[in-house]
Design a protein around this nucleic acid. Sequence first.
DNA 1: TAGATTTGACCTGA
DNA 2: TCAGGTCAAATCTA
Length: 352
Amino acid sequence: MERVARIGEKKALIINELTQGKEIANQLKSHIDTTTTYETCEFLVEKILSSYEKALSMLNWSALLESPHSLAGTSPRSENCDPLDCLKDQEHKQVFKKRKTTLPRWSEQVHICSGTGSEVPTGDGYSWRKYGQKDILGCNFPRAYYRCTHRNTQGCLAVKQVQKSDKDPSLVEITYRGRHTCIQVSGMTTKLASFGDEDSKGSKDRYQPQPEAEIPRQSQEVVSQLGECLKIEDLDTNGEIFPSFSFPSTPFETESLESHFFSECAKEDNFLGDFPPQFILPATSESIYFTLPPRHMTNLGMVQNLLSPDSVLTEIVSATTSVPNSPTGDLSFSLDQVDFDPKFLDIPEFFL
DNA sequence: TAGATTTGACCTGA
DNA sequence: TCAGGTCAAATCTA
């Protein structure tokens, strides 16, 4: 029974990714005929590749889970152990190779508010779980180690290290390793479930998109203050870095930043009704502020992120950077045209 | 009670 | 040998 549930969950995730891929491909197709900038097309292509990468990685992950022998052969223990245990075993053996070789690495610096007690380094759109902390030689502050919450469930190998600056305690250096291959499942499912149930209470409790694991743990005050002073500065961007942003300056009264942000998205008629997003882009030494009309907030990725809420900010800022001279942008996302038929995945063998 | 965090121990590469 | 990185049991929290 549990196996069936897992298969169904995987299927939904894969369908979502493929649907996104198709949707974005349609967008690209429509833009080819127009005067769309090269950057916009490139952005769309990146999104398509990302979606299919995720789908494929999920399929590969499924294969690992369903086929212990795929990992066997190098370890005698693998012959009759649980796939997850085998995987763990293999991971353990390879972890140090991964550490310094294959994973892409980049870092950024984040200003956090001083005096708030907040240790929230950033809202990069992903859920992180802290798995270690270490005193580093020559550093006054310990280094914290985080990995993606979905490491076990989706095999996402993204990790990050957070190191407070000695010189400026309000400055935190974050080093990322590995690209996210996960989907923020909890946010997605709860958001989808919220449709058609808009006026029911407690949507905040039901829907927790978790763009950043630390943030929901902070007080409302901290989250509000975060919006006023959080600023990310790219250091050695290599093209895979998460887009930098600042939170809207408007403090939220009763909800966390994310729940407010996404619950607004969930309102079909007033999609981001009066939400005045402002984003800081670290283009050069100066910060560039963009204000997007609500309608374009919708167009620039909200629909897509009904499926993948974790990347909301990534979508918006990426899209915005593509059209810096045209804040209104020329992208339009819509699911209206999506006719992707998930039935083709109903073949049980597909997941076995 | 499940999930997240803490922290000492352990492992690896330089 | 040591510093950095990770594991995993204990502990905390919602």
